[in-house]
Amino acid sequence: MLTPDQVMDNYFLEARCMLIEVAATLDRYDRAVENSDNPPASDERLAKLYSSLSILADQSGPANRSERVLNHFSLPTD
């Protein structure tokens, strides 16, 4: 198993890249809304993206964030 330092050394830049891509996607959506004559009132997928970010920001929670994000984007099973 990697040490904590090795995890950061190996994956910091890749994670940074992916977060910037998410930020750019959200900006792209906002600009498209601004330029649209008939913007959607809301979009469930966008809401899902925003609400998923709280899972990433949960620093003290259990180390199953990817599972929680996947569940967040899944249809309810009940």
């Binding site: 830049l13 890749e14 890249c17 910037i20 891509e21 750019a24 996607t25 900006d27 792209r28």
Partner: peptide
């Protein structure tokens, strides 16, 4: 670049 600097999508943005 694949990871650092800029991506194709962000460049188009």
């Amino acid at each position: 670049y694949p990871i650092t600097k800029c991506s194709p999508k962000r460049a188009c943005d």
